[in-house]
Amino acid sequence: MTAQTPRVGHASIDKVVEWVDTDASGHQHNSAIMRWVEAAEAELMRTLDLPDYFPSAPRVHQEISYRSKLWFGQLITATVEVQKLGRTSLTYAFEVRGHAHPKSTGGTAAFGTVTVAHVPPGFDTSLPWPGDLTEAITRLMAEDTDAA
Rank of each mutant, 00 (worst) to 15 (best):
R59N: 10
A93W: 04
A39W: 03
S104D: 03
A32P: 10
V116Y: 13
E18R: 15
D21V: 11
H10G: 06
T145M: 09
A11F: 15
F94Q: 06
A32H: 06
R46P: 02
H118R: 13
G112Q: 05
S104W: 09
K69A: 11
K15M: 11
G122S: 04
I13A: 10
T134Y: 13
V16W: 00
T138F: 11
A117H: 07
E41L: 03
L127I: 07
T5E: 13
I13K: 13
G98K: 02
D146V: 10
V37F: 02
D14G: 13
I33T: 14
T77P: 01
N30Q: 12
A136V: 09
G73L: 07
H61I: 02
D23E: 04
T91D: 07
T113H: 13
A42E: 14
D49L: 09
E43V: 00
R59C: 14
G106C: 09
T91Q: 08
A147C: 03
L127V: 13
L48V: 13
V114C: 11
V37Y: 07
Q28R: 10
Y53K: 01
T5D: 10
G98R: 07
R59E: 14
R46H: 07
S31R: 07
H29I: 03
T47I: 09
Q83A: 14
A42D: 14
S65M: 04
G73Y: 07
L85Q: 00
P55N: 12
T145D: 15
K103P: 02
D146I: 09
L48R: 13
V16S: 01
V16Q: 01
V96S: 05
M45D: 02
I137H: 01
H61V: 01
A11N: 11
G98V: 03
S68R: 15
M141Y: 04
A148R: 13
P55I: 00
P58L: 03
E38H: 12
A117K: 10
M45H: 10
D23Q: 09
T145P: 05
E143C: 00
T79G: 06
K69C: 08
G107L: 08
D144F: 05
G107R: 05
N30L: 15
E135G: 08
D146R: 15
R87G: 10
L127R: 13
R87I: 07
W129D: 00
L140T: 01
Q28A: 13
A100N: 06
H101D: 06
N30C: 11
K15G: 05
P55Q: 11
D14C: 11
S68W: 06
S89K: 02
T134F: 13
V8W: 12
E81G: 10
T105K: 11
